[in-house]
Amino acid sequence: MDIDINHIIQQSLKGDKNFQEILLKRLRPLIYKNIYKYWDVWDTEAEDMAQEGYIVILMSLKTFDSKKNVHYLHYIKTKLEYFYKNQHRKSGFRTNVSSLQEALHEYKTASSLSSIERIADQEEKYDLMKSIQNLSSEEQKIIYLYYFYGQSMQSISMNLGIKYGKVRSLKRQALSKLSIQMCRR
């Protein structure tokens, strides 16, 4: 049975720990949606930022003023947006492209490869990374989450705040593009 979000919010504001835990689970997609605006899916800092987001939500339960006629969801959405924007400014700017370029550079500069097979394997990885770089940012995120982090498409849908059907479509589209690009190489 699905509990009404307004009931969950009211109980969370009253301090009910069980409902606060439910609220955190319900707001998880909002957290990751904001994180992925500023950090790469594969960035290790993203998971730390998720934990920070949970803390922001819990703290906001104490600071929320219902007398101001603002719904809690609007309040927390705005609070998370500005929190992540400020954290991103503090940590320095990194884009998907720059992270991929760093990964490509690592593949290029791999030292002392001992056999032709290892060299061929590195070449394939390099070509794949270069091809992934040509995908849209949404396609890149889906490919990385699905293949590199082993997340299910349902989980990716929730984390990115994208409908499941769109995630499937984007994944299929990305694989098609990668297939074409890899065949050309």
Rank of each mutant, 00 (worst) to 15 (best):
E102Q: 12
S111W: 13
I57C: 00
I8H: 01
M1C: 14
N34G: 03
E47F: 14
N86I: 12
K67D: 03
I9Q: 02
Q133C: 15
A120S: 15
D121A: 12
L145T: 13
G165V: 09
L128I: 09
Y84W: 05
K77V: 14
Y144F: 08
S136N: 04
R168A: 10
N86D: 15
E139I: 05
W42R: 15
Q133P: 03
Y84C: 04
L128G: 06
I31C: 09
S115A: 05
F83Y: 04
Y126L: 15
M59A: 11
I116W: 11
I22W: 04
M59P: 14
N134L: 07
N96V: 12
L100E: 03
L61R: 00
S112E: 04
S179Y: 08
K62D: 02
R28K: 10
I116H: 14
Q11H: 06
Y107D: 07
Y146D: 03
D127Q: 09
A110H: 07
Q51S: 09
S176D: 13
H71Y: 11
S91L: 13
R184S: 10
E81Q: 14
T109N: 11
L104D: 11
K79F: 00
K68I: 14
L145G: 14
S131N: 01
Q140L: 09
L178F: 07
Y75F: 10
L170S: 00
K108Y: 02
T95R: 09
M49D: 07
K25T: 11
K17V: 00
T109Q: 14
Y84M: 08
N159P: 08
Y144C: 12
I9H: 02
A120P: 04
K68R: 13
E138D: 10
W42P: 03
L113M: 07
S137L: 12
Q51V: 04
Y164K: 09
R28H: 15
I143V: 15
K68D: 02
G92C: 01
Y72A: 05
F148P: 07
N6Q: 09
Y149Q: 14
L170N: 01
S66Y: 12
G161M: 07
T95F: 10
L27P: 05
N96G: 13
S112D: 07
A174R: 06
F64G: 05
I116S: 13
Q122P: 01
F19N: 04
S12F: 15
N134R: 13
K67N: 07
Y84N: 01
T63P: 00
K77A: 15
L58F: 08
E47G: 07
I55R: 08
Y38P: 03
R28E: 15
S115H: 11
G161E: 03
L24C: 07
F64Y: 11
Y149L: 11
Y32D: 02
L170E: 05
S136E: 10
S12Y: 12
K79R: 08
K125H: 05
I22S: 04
I22Q: 10
E124G: 01
I156F: 13
S136M: 02
K77Q: 12
I35A: 04
L23R: 00
G15C: 00
D121N: 06
I180W: 13
K62L: 03
E52Y: 12
D65K: 05
Q51D: 07
D121S: 10
N34K: 04
N6M: 09
H74N: 15
K14L: 13
V97S: 11
I143P: 06
D48Q: 03
L61Q: 00
G92W: 00
H105P: 05
S98R: 11
Y147H: 13
I180Y: 10
